[in-house]
Design a protein around this nucleic acid. Structure first.
Lengths: 228, 228
DNA sequence: TTGACAAAACAGGACAACCGGTCTGTTTTA
DNA sequence: TAAAACAGACCGGTTGTCCTGTTTTGTCAA
C-alpha cells in the first residue's frame, strides 16, 4: 500500500502526485467494491488519510474523481488485462482464450468476484452523466478495436478468412462482460469457463463434429463472501 | 399510467393493491433509469403520489422495495422477454435468435437504451446486500435453466447432439448481457446485431465454410439521449 | 546564499440540502 | 371495534461542496 504521511507534528511535506495517487488508489478500490454512489468522499478521505481541503484541491467534485479513475485506472486495467495480452498472443482466438483462462484462474484463486471495473461503472454511471458515459464508451471501443485489429492481422496471415473482425470482437467483449456479470452475481467464477468452452466448442470455424468426451466442467462456488 | 387518487377533500378511498402497484411501477422505472442509489424515496413518493406513511406501510425499508421490484418485476421481465419466447420457439437457437432480434428492433425503435433491468440492478446491488444478490442470482439461474432445458429438448428430438446445454445457455445469457451493457454505454443498439451475427455465423455447428457476402451490418447510433 | 513573494498545496471547519427511517395521529374498512 | 390503510410531520445522520486560513514550495532578484 502507499504510505501515509508521517505523523510529524509541526512539520509537513507536500507531495501532490503522491497524495493524488493515494486518493485515486482508494477511489478505484472503493468504486469497484461498493460502487460510485455508495462510496462517500468522507470514507475515501479517511481511507486515503487526506483532508477535505487537499481532496478538493486535486478533485473539485466527485465527478472529477470518477473521471480520473475511469480515464487513468479503468482504461489501464482493460489495457493490461485484455489489449496487451491479445496483441501479444499468437492469434485473436488464442488471445481471447488466454485472457478468459487467466481471469478465471485469478478469480478462483481469489475466492471472490468483484466484477469487471469497466462494466461495474458503466452500468451505474453511463445513464447518469454524459461525460462519464463518453469516457466509458471510449474504453469499450478501444477494447473492441484491439481485438478486431488482431483478427485483421490474422487475416493478413491467411487465417480467419470467414470471420468478421468487428463482430468477433463484439462477441468476445460481450461474452466476457456478461460472464463477469453473472460470476459477480452468483459469486461463481465457473461461468467464465462455461462461456469460454461454449465459444471454443462452437465458435471455432474448424468444428463440425467434435463430440468427444468433453472434460466435465467444474462448478466452483466461491466460499467466502466478504465486502472490500 | 396508473391513476393517482382523486383530489376529493375530506374523502378517501383505500386501495392497498393499487397503491402498492403504483409504487412498484415508479420504483421499477426509476431503478432502471437512474439506478437504486440514485433513486430517492422522496422522488418515488412524489412520482407515485404517495405519502411517507403509506410507503412505509407497504415497504418498511428501501431494501424491501428493491426486493419487491426484483422478485415481481425483474423476474417477470426476464420471463416475458426471454424464457417464454425461448420455450415457445422451434428450437433453442431459434429462440435465442428471435429474442436478440426482437430486443434489437425494440431498441432501434425506442431510440434509447436503458439496458437490461436484471444486469443493471445486479451490478449495483449484488455486492451490497446478500438478500438482493440471492434474488438476482436466482433470476439469472432460471434464465440459464430455461435455455438449457430447451437445448435438452432439442437433443431429445435428435438435434444439437454436440452442444452442451449448460454451456450454450451460459454463452447466450452472457452474450446478451454484455451486448446490452455495451449498447447502453455506447447508446448504440447495433452491438446486439453484431453479437447475434457473430453467434450465428460462428456458433452454428453446421458451419465449416460460409464466407458468402455477409450483409453489411448497419451501425445505428441513436440520436436522442435524454434521461428518463 | 539569501530573502522576498506569489502560487501551489494542504488543513479543517461550516453548511445547506437531502436521505431514509420513525413517530403519532386520523381515516377507512372488514 | 379492532386492524389495516393512510397522512404528514419530524429527526438524526450523512452527503457533497464551499470557504477561510495556514503552510510549503518554486522562482528570481539582490
Amino acid at each position: 500500500m502507499t504510505a501515509r504521511p508521517k505523523v510529524r507534528p509541526g512539520k509537513r511535506t507536500n507531495d501532490p502526485e503522491g497524495l493524488r495517487k493515494r486518493v485515486i488508489d482508494v477511489a478505484e478500490a472503493s468504486f469497484q467494491a461498493r460502487g460510485y454512489h455508495a462510496s462517500s468522499l468522507g470514507d475515501l478521505m479517511a481511507a486515503a488519510g487526506v483532508t477535505g481541503g487537499a481532496l478538493h484541491h486535486h478533485f473539485p467534485t466527485k465527478k472529477a474523481l470518477a473521471l480520473a479513475v475511469i480515464e487513468e485506472r479503468v482504461a489501464a486495467a482493460v489495457e493490461a488485462t485484455w489489449i496487451a495480452p491479445v496483441q501479444a498472443a499468437g492469434s485473436a482466438r488464442e488471445g481471447v482464450r488466454s485472457v478468459f483462462e487467466a481471469v478465471a484462474a485469478e478469480l478462483e484463486q481469489q475466492g471472490f468476484v468483484r466484477g469487471c471495473p469497466l462494466n461495474n461503472l458503466a452500468h451505474e454511471l453511463s445513464l447518469a452523466d454524459p461525460d462519464l458515459r463518453a469516457a466509458l464508451a471510449g474504453i469499450f471501443s478501444a477494447w473492441r478495436q484491439a481485438i478486431a485489429d488482431k483478427v485483421r492481422a490474422d487475416q493478413q496471415a491467411g487465417r480467419e478468412q470467414d470471420t468478421d473482425p468487428q463482430r468477433f470482437a463484439a462477441l468476445a467483449v460481450a461474452t466476457y462482460s456478461g460472464a463477469m456479470s453473472m460470476a459477480k452475481t452468483a459469486q461463481d467464477s465457473g461461468v467464465l469457463r462455461d462461456c469460454l468452452n461454449a465459444l471454443e466448442q462452437e465458435a471455432s470455424p474448424a468444428s463440425s463434429s467434435k463430440g468427444e468426451a468433453v472434460a466435465k466442467r467444474r462448478r466452483r462456488v466461491l466460499r467466502q463472501y466478504k465486502a472490500f
